[in-house]
Design a binder for these strands. Structure first.
Lengths: 165, 165
DNA sequence: GGAGGATATGTTATAATGTTGCAATGAGAC
DNA sequence: GTCTCATTGCAACATTATAACATATCCTCC
C-alpha cells in the first residue's frame, strides 16, 4: 500500500472484484461488530467503490435515485456517517468527497495523495508521517484525536502523460 | 512557533498589537510584490486576526455588513482568495474556515493543531512532518503541489481544565 | 408470537458554504 | 486625458450538509 503500483488503482484493474471484495469485508466486519450493513449502507459502499475515486454525497444520491430508491440527502449522509465510523470509507476534506478504505480493520488515520489532474485519490499509510505527526503533538502537549493528511499534486500516470502542464 | 507556549495564542496576549503587526506585515509584503491591499482585503485580514482563531467566510461577511460595507459572498471569497494566494491566511479544510498566517513571507504549507474544545487552531511548521510528506510523495512518484495537515484534538489548556472529558 | 425499545429510514424544510456571470468602478500606465 | 486592467457591486444560483419529526423495521424478552 505504500508502493507506487498499488497506491493509485491501475486503469485496467478488475473493478468488479475489488468492489465485491470490499463489500465482503464490510459484511464480515459488521457481523463481527454486531452491526447492520443495511441495503442502503451496502449500496452506498458499493457505489463508492465502483467509482474508485472520491465521490460526492450528491453524486451518490443521484445514483440511488436513478435506481429507483427513495433517497434524500439525509439518507446518503447517514449511510456515509455509519461507514465512516466503521472505517469503511474516508472523507477527503479538500474535495468534500468520500472514498472507500481498503484496510477497514486496521485502525489508521487516512493519508491521501490526490491527483489534481485525474482526480484519483490514493490512500497510503506511511508510518514515518504518522510518527512525525504524533511526535509534534506530544511535543506541544496536544492530545491527538484525529489526523487529516491530504497531499495534492500529480500522480505518476498524469505526470508521464504530461497532463497538468 | 514549534513551542507549546507560542503555538496556541495565550488568552491574555495583546490582540490589538498582533493584529496591527499582521496588517503591517501584509502591507509591506503587498508593496514589495506590487499588489494592492485594498480596503476590503485589509479589513478581512484584520477581522481574521482579531478573532485569532478559525473564522468562517459568512461570519466575516456578517461583520462587514454590520459595519455598513456593501458586501456579498463574492466580496469575502475574493478577498480570502487573494489573501490565501499571498500566504496571508490559510484555509482549514476540516472547519471550512480561515486563519491568519504569522509567517506570510516564508513559504510553507500550513500544518495545524485544532482544538475540538475551544476551537482554536495553532499553526506549526515542523520540518520532520514536512520531510516525511515529501519523502512519501517522492517514493511514490507523486509530484507534490499542496499539503494539508490538520490534527484535531485537545490543546494543552483544555486538557488541563478537563474540558472535552 | 406479541409488546416494547432501540435502531434505522422517510420526508420536508432549511442552513451553511461557495460559485458564475456580467456590469460598473477605480487605479495606474502611457 | 484616455486606455487598460484589476477590483468591486450585484443578482442569481450551485453545492454541501443538517434539523426536526414521523414512520418503519429489527431484536429482545416475556
Amino acid at each position: 500500500m505504500t508502493e507506487a503500483s498499488t497506491a493509485f488503482p491501475s486503469s485496467d484493474h478488475d473493478h468488479g472484484s475489488c468492489v465485491a471484495h470490499a463489500v465482503a469485508k464490510a459484511e464480515e466486519l459488521c457481523r463481527s461488530r454486531g452491526l447492520r450493513l443495511t441495503e442502503i449502507r451496502r449500496r452506498v459502499l458499493e457505489l463508492v467503490w465502483e467509482r474508485h475515486g472520491p465521490v460526492g454525497a450528491y453524486a451518490l444520491l443521484d445514483t440511488l435515485r436513478s435506481e429507483g430508491m427513495a433517497a434524500a440527502p439525509p439518507t446518503v449522509y447517514r449511510a456515509l456517517d455509519f461507514l465512516q465510523e466503521q472505517g469503511l470509507v474516508h472523507r477527503i476534506e479538500r474535495l468534500n468527497a468520500f472514498v472507500g478504505c481498503g484496510q477497514p480493520d486496521a485502525p489508521h488515520s487516512g493519508q491521501f495523495l490526490i491527483c489534481s489532474e485525474c482526480g484519483l485519490a490514493a490512500e497510503i499509510d506511511d508510518p514515518a508521517i504518522d510518527r512525525a505527526l504524533t511526535q509534534a503533538a506530544v511535543a506541544l502537549g496536544f492530545e491527538l484525536r484525529g489526523k487529516t493528511v491530504e497531499l495534492e499534486g500529480l500522480c505518476p500516470d498524469c505526470r508521464r502523460s504530461g497532463n497538468g502542464r
